[in-house]
């Protein structure tokens, strides 16, 4: 059993990872070509613009914030959504072993956070993701819109966090198993990005830009 875990770990660290990177890159290229290969939105609207309030770039940043009057309408999903995104980024970029791996891949290096902090952030992120799931199943509009893909995407996002936590805390599973499953789930997530709603990790930025650009030309900071 342990031999299998070791073998699996070797595979996900080697060929598995390479395959995932290739699919991610290829998939992203196809998707980006599909999206931005389309004609650009008409720019003639600019010809009547005499004022500018905000810009596409400003909207990219402004949409990280909660629009006025909206928090009270959907507190759970806003707070859990924001916490989970921040937590995910913190754990991914500021956990020392991740930094070492990224350093291996890119040559870049930066200071991480102490393990105790990472531990706290991971628990908070796991909890936030569960709240997001509860919202997806409980909030009327969200439940109505959600399809199988949405739940699958949630699971694919949750598993790397969960397995990573199990490996980090040395609980539930032998370390080799936990690490192998962690890497495997990360690879599944990577493969899913281009072909599912996870694509919003890229297109949320372009969408915000398109939104902000058109509204700013009309004089509205969106």
């Amino acid at each position: 059993m342990n031999a299998f875990a070791t073998e699996l770990l070797l595979w996900v660290k080697g060929p598995g990872f390479t395959i995932a990177v290739i699919i991610l890159m290829l998939g992203l290229s196809i998707r980006l070509m599909e999206i931005f290969g389309m004609k650009a939105p008409d720019k003639l609207v600019y010809s009547q613009s005499n004022r500018q309030s905000g810009s596409g770039v400003q909207t990219i940043f402004r949409r990280f914030l909660i629009p006025k009057g909206m928090l009270s309408r959907a507190p759970g999903i806003y707070l859990a959504g924001i916490l989970f995104h921040i937590g995910y980024a913190v754990v991914f970029f500021l956990f020392e072993p991740h930094i070492a791996l990224l350093n291996n891949l890119t040559g870049l290096n930066w200071q991480g956070l102490p393990n105790s902090v990472i531990d706290f952030v991971a628990v908070m992120t796991l909890f936030s993701m569960i709240v997001v799931l509860v919202c997806r199943m409980g909030r009327r509009a969200m439940r109505f819109l959600s399809d199988l893909e949405d739940y699958l995407v949630w699971l694919l996002t949750f598993l790397p966090l969960l397995t990573g936590f199990v490996a980090f805390r040395h609980v539930l599973l032998p370390y080799t198993w936990a690490l192998a499953l962690h890497l495997l789930s990360v690879e599944l997530l990577m493969i899913a990005i281009p072909f599912t709603k996870l694509m919003h990790t890229v297109t949320a930025f372009s969408s915000r830009w398109y939104n902000g650009d058109i509204y700013s030309r009309k004089g509205v900071m969106s």
Partner: peptide, 16 residues
């Protein structure tokens, strides 16, 4: 157009 393609591929079904 590219904005429509971007919008549809970015929607996370958050319902907000």
């Amino acid at each position: 157009d590219a904005s429509v393609a971007s919008f549809f591929s970015a929607c996370t079904h958050c319902g907000l």
